[in-house]
Nucleic acid binder design. Sequence first.
DNA 1: TGTACATCAGTGAACGCGCGTTCACTGATGTAC
DNA 2: TGTACATCAGTGAACGCGCGTTCACTGATGTAC
Lengths: 218, 218
Amino acid sequence: VRYTGSTAGTGVRRERNRRGEGSRLRGELIEAGVAMVEAQGAEALSLRSLAREVGIAATSIYLHFTDLGEFRAALVQRCFEQLTEAAGAAASGSDDPADALRARCRAYCRFAVGHPNLYQLMFGAPLPPAPLGDPASTPGRRSFENLVIAVDVCLRAGPAGRHDDPFRLASLIWSAEHGIAMTRIFRPMFPWAPLDELVEEMVDRLMGFGPAGQRTER
Amino acid sequence: VRYTGSTAGTGVRRERNRRGEGSRLRGELIEAGVAMVEAQGAEALSLRSLAREVGIAATSIYLHFTDLGEFRAALVQRCFEQLTEAAGAAASGSDDPADALRARCRAYCRFAVGHPNLYQLMFGAPLPPAPLGDPASTPGRRSFENLVIAVDVCLRAGPAGRHDDPFRLASLIWSAEHGIAMTRIFRPMFPWAPLDELVEEMVDRLMGFGPAGQRTER
DNA sequence: TGTACATCAGTGAACGCGCGTTCACTGATGTAC
DNA sequence: TGTACATCAGTGAACGCGCGTTCACTGATGTAC
């Protein structure tokens, strides 16, 4: 005899929403999904395990999401909002453009390393096809655009005569910070230098900050 | 009635090895496993699908591997050997240390981007715990050591007065090339600059190559 | 003020699937005597 | 030269599992009359 009832697992049976407030479940599901992925990794996420966690029948999820893919896309979306906000908040603390850029990159990497399972969810699966119509609005695009702007501000504030392409330079920095975070996540035993230090060194070298002719240490 | 026979799927039933040559199957399994992952992604790999592909009973795999984890570890090992060799071969073509370093990094990224599913297998799962006893000999460590040497040669050949730590600089370059490859793999729609160009620009900037005071383009 | 009824917010049983792993087995083949 | 036998290289049925998804359903509650 198979048991598919809703009180399995750790969860308690959840109280049903009042009439008209059915959509609250949607938010609870996303919340719980983020928590599950964060705690147990993206692979541990299934509709059934999620339902168990929330204390509902698995089928109830279909009231708010057409399938698992759509639910995962909603989680990704949500995580990118958090990342974008964290990076923006960190950057807003500095007046100096270079410091702001460093802070932004530090925050990005700290988010990734601090929430490795979320970060893998965000980048570890092919993006669900964009909602057809706004091709450039993938989640994470906002975050990247902010980085381009931050780089551009630095370039304009720097010594004249530089004409680096801010978009290109930003994509290089993005790749590098992604790499710094990912290698650390997947090779935790490697003798890494402290995260903040490494990120700042990366930014300084890629941007050409620091002592003009030669660079020794910072 | 369930069907678990060996002629299922595309495969033909395989001829059994001659006496004393049973270990040939091990090699065939690894070969087929690499091919499967490369073609269909790391998630498509299962003992049953592998057995189908090779044309044997699923249980025969246990003659050579204690479980799926050990098999996967063998695949990872094998892939790292290929990567290390590709990077080394590319670097051996140049006398100039900087060119050799650029070529090494280009080859690394080309391998990753050219075999995205293999590369994800190599870095996408936590490394199976090292075989207890040689802690520093994880697969990929060889490859990294070669990179440290290449960086060191460049530093020694460069202008005196530089005292960057080659290990630290190499770990930064490794992270960056990993990031360049991974972002490209997972965001294929992003308007990336050509791979080789971006890799070289990354190396030049991180190493401090190029026009001493200012850098415009290359 | 009372009541029929539509709607809302879910439930629960069942389906078929592929998976890792176990267990007892089989049949060819080389070797010892 | 013949034959018993150990070994080798596998086989095939079965187990229990969790999964995504379907389908018909249920019971509370707000609203129209």
